[in-house]
Design a protein around this nucleic acid. Structure first.
Lengths: 335, 335
DNA sequence: CCCAAAAATGTAAACGTTTACATAACGGTT
DNA sequence: AACCGTTATGTAAACGTTTACATTTTTGGG
């Protein structure tokens, strides 16, 4: 906004020097109480707000954290942002977002343009190699990766317990007596997708169940891809008795396909998903899923980042995993 | 990020003055082609990025727009942000967001803290009086209100065609032969809610249908409030034959209530909603609704704002209305 | 009442840009 | 060859802060 009153105006009006005003605004302790009040009063009267640009020029800090979101949006990411924003504000930080990145080059551009505008970054780049994007950042730049495939362990990272959640969900299906369980996978190059597939495989292996190749159908996290996979399964001669979709959107797509094919869920076939999006409880039948506390994910990432920004030097890189919980509803036939 | 190379380094290295470097970075035309290339090469070699704080200090602009979101999140707002962000980036602007505001005081605080960090604002404050929030802004500050109750017409505003959409939806029910139509309203103090109710009333009046008071049930846009209203209707001796919910979430809640009560939708009772959230097509039966192009809403708001920022002086205040379209699915019994 | 230490305040440099103004280089006319 | 109008470049002030350092005021112990 068109800043109007400057620190000089306040200083003159209050009969003190600019240094004193600055000290008052920064809550320095070396200022007498009565002058403090006097300055504060003048400042509010004049509607004075420190110029953030000038401040950042000399302090080299911006009180802002940047957030990079992937191209695909939806309820998941809006919840994450919510968690980030609330936590950031609680610590007097602002949030600069940037969403929808088509490719690697896009990400590079955005990172460059954020340079100097943010004190730290939260990166959510599930599909792509995050390495090259990170390479262009200054050494030791405060950074937290959320749900990224990052092998090097050079950076702070937070991920969802994809493997454990998927494993638990599939075990539950096994416990219900299913032996032919299909999976609809997420995107090829997607980190979450790969982990959930790994969990699926592990649970089957544990149960000594065969893993026929044609029980793994590829999707891309969209409802339509779930629908396609469901339709394909419905028309098979020997159908599986249960389907684990790598996310809820695909599970819901599959539900529609089964309904159209005249199949009853869960009697003819059980369906389960992952994420526990709000929609899950309202579809028919209500969808069993793996619950993730999404806004806590954002909160956690922000706290990690703030920590890293406090001590840019001796910061210990850590990898954190958000636990998941099984939510059993009607679609899996347990109720 | 810890900015490292400054304009001076580039100037020295390239054997020119800082002014020349500045001109190159700002694409001024008064610089010879060969020096331009020379400077550009040095700049990229040194990884030079202009310090945005210093820039904003002297130009008094930040290349950033601020976005204020309401407390309640969900798919609607994440779509809006997406539209805003894409459009902003296309014009080389950044987006500073702030979500979840409990009360008036909260909003004031955030607006104050954004002061000087943004060149313009997009406000989405559906529940509250926006007037007092706006009052604290500098005169003529670039501003666009989205879905706000704003009577004064002092500011640019964009709203959804709530009235027309609701009217069309209810007319459609009338055309299908319904004479006893109930409505589940949104929050008391909510602008959208009020407009949709007005559309409902208008359509009934037009059709010369009576408007019995007990056919208007109050909700608050949440699924649970829709469920409650649905349950209440289901147990009545003389049920209405159709229900118009002020948004899809409540419509979906009502669907669940009717299913529990053993009613068949649409045979026993027709149900329709508003917003056409993605979930709408996946519930059973698929929900008829009023479609809004949400991301276009964000895009439109951003374009208006950028315009206003171009010419802070002679900008003509305007009110725009995003049209809606009727989406007929199975829940209203037309198919 | 004096003096040193502590507390409060002031002075001025520095941060990295942009830009008005001054200057220099360069053809092209006379 | 002197002059002019472009065109290209340089110089330096200004933007609004913070902060090291200098200076003044206050305090309290002798």
């Amino acid at each position: 906004m068109a800043a109007t009153a400057t620190i000089k105006h306040v200083a003159r009006e209050a009969g003190v020097s600019v240094a004193t005003v600055s000290r008052v605004m920064n809550e320095s302790s070396l200022v007498a109480e009565h002058t403090r009040l006097q300055v504060l009063q003048v400042a509010t009267r004049l509607g004075y707000v420190p110029h953030s640009g000038a401040r950042s020029l000399i302090t080299n800090r911006t009180s802002t954290i940047g957030v990079l979101l992937p191209d695909l949006y939806g309820e998941f990411y809006s919840e994450v942002i919510r968690g980030i924003d609330q936590t950031a504000r609680r610590h007097d930080y602002h949030v600069l977002v940037s969403s929808s990145h088509a490719d690697q080059h896009d990400i590079d551009t955005v990172l460059r343009s954020m340079r100097g505008r943010v004190d730290g970054l939260i990166l959510m780049v599930p599909d792509l190699q995050v390495a090259s994007a990170v390479a262009m950042l200054p050494e030791r730049f405060p950074l937290v990766l959320v749900n990224c495939a990052e092998e090097s362990r050079q950076h702070d990272a937070i991920t969802v317990a994809n493997f454990e959640g998927a494993d638990a969900m599939v075990r539950h299906l096994v416990d219900l007596g299913h032996t032919r369980i299909a999976m609809i996978t997420g995107g090829e190059r997607n980190f979450d997708a790969a982990e959930r597939l790994r969990g699926f495989r592990s649970a089957l292996e544990q149960a000594a169940l065969s893993m026929e190749g044609d029980l793994i159908l590829s999707g891309d996290f969209s409802e339509t891809s779930g629908f396609r996979a469901g339709a394909e399964l419905a028309q098979r001669a020997s159908r599986p008795t249960a389907v684990f979709a790598a996310n809820d959107a695909m599970a819901i797509g599959a539900l529609s396909a089964f309904r159209e094919a005249g199949l009853d869920v869960p009697r003819d076939i059980a369906v389960v998903g992952f994420d526990d999006i709000p929609m899950a409880r309202y579809v028919d039948p209500p969808l069993s899923s793996v619950h993730v506390d999404i806004s806590a994910l954002g909160e956690c990432a922000t706290i990690r980042l703030l920590e890293a920004m406090q001590q840019p030097a001796g910061h210990v890189v850590r990898r954190e995993i958000m636990p998941t919980t099984l939510v059993v509803r009607r679609s899996c036939g347990a109720l």
